[in-house]
Simulated assay, not measured.
Amino acid sequence: MKNKEGQQSLQDSLTGLPEWASERIMQQIRQLTNYEPAIGIMGKTGAGKSSLCNALFASEVSPVSDVMACTREPLRFRLQVGERFMTLVDLPGVGESDARDNEYAALYRDQLPRLDLVLWLIKADDRALVTDEHFYQQVIGEAYRHKVLFVISQSDKAEPGSGGDKLSTEQKQNISHKICLLHELFQPVHPVCAISVRLQWGVRVMAERMIRCLPREASSSVVAQLQHSFRTDAVNKKARDDFGETVGSVLDTVSSMPLIPAPIRAIIQAARDTVVSVARAVWSFFF
């Protein structure tokens, strides 16, 4: 019901445009509101991929199985909250087998163009990163670096581990050193995150950073899948602004179509700010 109200409000904001232009804009907005994001999650065995996904997302994610070890086709999990869908793609971690790493390179090159983001989990106590660095430089490369968010997982296992219910000062210092090391090794586009799902430490910050790393068209649909506790004001604002800007881009695209008469182009451009404002205002009706 709210979805229809939101669409009607956006339709009303397009009053004054030719019917063909209004319909084309609404068609693209409907595609936006139904966008199904795809997020890859990679990491070596035991990095905590399924634990993180279950902590982040509202719908249940099936545990990661060992099928990945014997197939080049990654496991895919479709999440659903209400009428919203999202896909998680379980990607294999590198550095466990030279033979498999060659297979994985082909798999990644095939998958990367289709993914909105890759969460690359590296265990806090993992020191064998040479293969990861090589893989990142050679396979991810310049073309897809912006799609990778590094996450130091299982921070509660950082030295000196105690098994307690909170991180020690020494552990936090070692995690800070690990973050610096990953920045030196990988020179990532996005700041490295550190989390402990067991202690519920750092996950909210990581969720917010994930939303900031996503392309504009994907952020709202991912926010709709998050656990309620991670849908903070900052997260919702980012997604709402992204949605408004993406709707604005739709109007820009239509107004710049060839053969559009200058007066029609002027009408579309004049309506842009109003339509963007309405899109932000009705964002919660969709997401």
Rank of each mutant, 00 (worst) to 15 (best):
L181A: 14
V94M: 07
S176K: 14
A99D: 03
Y144Q: 11
R145W: 04
G163S: 00
F243L: 14
V118R: 08
G141K: 07
T274P: 04
R209A: 07
C180I: 13
Q111R: 10
F135A: 08
I260G: 02
D273Q: 15
N102T: 09
V254E: 14
S50M: 10
E103W: 12
W201N: 11
Q269S: 12
Q154L: 09
P263S: 05
E5W: 05
L14C: 12
S62H: 02
R212G: 01
R76V: 15
V282D: 10
M42H: 08
V151E: 01
D241S: 03
I260E: 02
A69V: 00
Q80G: 01
G40F: 05
C70I: 05
S284F: 11
P92K: 06
A105C: 05
Y35E: 14
R265L: 00
D125A: 01
F286A: 07
S51I: 02
G163Q: 08
E73Y: 02
C213F: 02
Q111F: 05
L91Y: 06
S155V: 07
V89Q: 11
E73G: 00
R272G: 05
F285D: 12
G202W: 03
R78N: 03
A55P: 00
I29Y: 11
S219E: 02
V235C: 07
V254S: 03
P74M: 10
H177S: 13
V94C: 03
L115E: 05
G93I: 00
L121T: 04
L56N: 07
V278S: 06
M1K: 08
V235E: 01
N174L: 10
V64P: 00
R204H: 01
S277T: 14
M42K: 04
I29T: 13
D12N: 13
D273E: 13
L121R: 01
I152Y: 04
D125I: 04
D110F: 03
P74Q: 09
D156W: 03
V205I: 06
I29S: 10
V192W: 05
S153N: 07
E170V: 01
R272P: 00
R265I: 00
C193E: 06
S255I: 06
Q138H: 14
L226K: 02
L259A: 02
E83T: 12
K49T: 07
T246H: 12
S219C: 10
S153V: 04
M257I: 00
S162Q: 13
P74D: 11
V139Q: 13
A194P: 08
R30W: 08
A99L: 11
F285N: 13
C180V: 15
R30Q: 15
W20V: 11
I25D: 07
H177K: 15
N34C: 12
M1Q: 11
V148D: 07
F135S: 12
E170D: 10
V250Q: 04
F243C: 09
P188G: 08
T253Y: 06
V203A: 06
W20Q: 13
S221A: 12
F287E: 13
S277K: 13
T71A: 04
L181D: 15
F286E: 07
M26Q: 10
P215C: 07
I268R: 07
I179L: 08
C70S: 08
G6T: 13
A194G: 09
C53Y: 00
R240T: 15
I41S: 05
R84P: 05
I211A: 00
K172L: 15
G141Q: 11
N54Y: 01
Q80W: 04
F77E: 11
A239D: 06
K237Q: 14
H177V: 15
M68C: 00
G244F: 04
Q225I: 10
I41V: 15
G16L: 15
